[in-house]
Amino acid sequence: MHLAPFQSDNGASSDPINAHITEGFRKQFSSNGATKLGISPDEIKAQADLIKSVAADIDRMIRLLEDFRGFENDAVKKMIHKANNETYGGEYDLLNENDVDNIVHDLAVSRTEGVYRFHDEEILHDLINKLLEDSITFSNLHTKSEQLASTCCRHISILATT
């Protein structure tokens, strides 16, 4: 069998650009010879939106942990106040306010700024700081992804006009 100068065994004889491209690369080029993108700007934007959503979820977790601190603070104060009231002729009339304070002290994990805590404040602080770092990282990644998508759109527009 005799082949034309730019004819290949894979049947690309009508296309001199693709005639010598191996089959694996053939799908990487459009009919005008321009390279095809492996990922579109819209797909990059979709991933950027997903990243933004993850950053928002992390921010929400941080707010919930900080709200927990406030809730715990209020609940402990309310519990101590209620127990102290019961020492005056109530259910705990054999105890005094110092006894209530000693019991809460023994049960609590720590006391920070005059407030008894029933969680490890250092671990919670470290967790919030780590989440803040992650939130910043994801926010930066979102910004860079948005910039990448915009840059791709600009380059595609330029290439389309040339």
Rank of each mutant, 00 (worst) to 15 (best):
T112K: 06
H155E: 10
F68M: 06
I51Q: 00
S14L: 06
Y88G: 06
S110Q: 04
R111I: 07
H155W: 14
N98T: 15
V115C: 05
D42R: 03
R154S: 08
I44R: 00
A75Q: 14
N102Y: 11
E66L: 12
P16A: 05
T87N: 06
E122H: 12
P16D: 03
S8V: 03
E133F: 13
I136E: 15
H155Y: 14
Y116G: 00
I39C: 03
V100C: 02
D106R: 09
D15H: 03
F6H: 08
D9V: 10
I51S: 00
G70D: 12
R60S: 12
E72F: 06
I136C: 04
I17R: 10
H105G: 10
Q47Y: 12
A83T: 08
D93T: 08
S8K: 01
I62H: 04
R69N: 14
I51V: 12
G70W: 07
L37Y: 09
L141A: 10
L94R: 14
I58T: 03
I39Y: 04
L64S: 15
V115M: 03
R154E: 12
S14P: 05
D42H: 10
R69Y: 11
K45L: 13
L64N: 15
A160C: 08
K52C: 00
F29S: 01
N102T: 10
E133H: 10
S150P: 03
I44W: 00
I158G: 10
T151D: 09
D42S: 13
D126K: 13
S8G: 15
L124E: 07
I39M: 08
G24W: 10
M1E: 05
K130C: 03
S145E: 05
D101C: 01
G114A: 08
S14K: 03
T137N: 11
N84V: 10
D9H: 08
H155D: 05
N129I: 05
E23T: 14
R26I: 04
M79C: 09
A75W: 15
C153V: 07
N85K: 12
A56G: 12
K27W: 10
C152V: 07
N129D: 09
N32L: 11
G90L: 04
L132F: 10
G24Y: 10
L159F: 06
G89H: 13
Q47S: 13
R111E: 14
H142M: 04
I136T: 13
S13M: 12
F6D: 04
N10D: 13
G33Q: 05
I62W: 02
E72W: 03
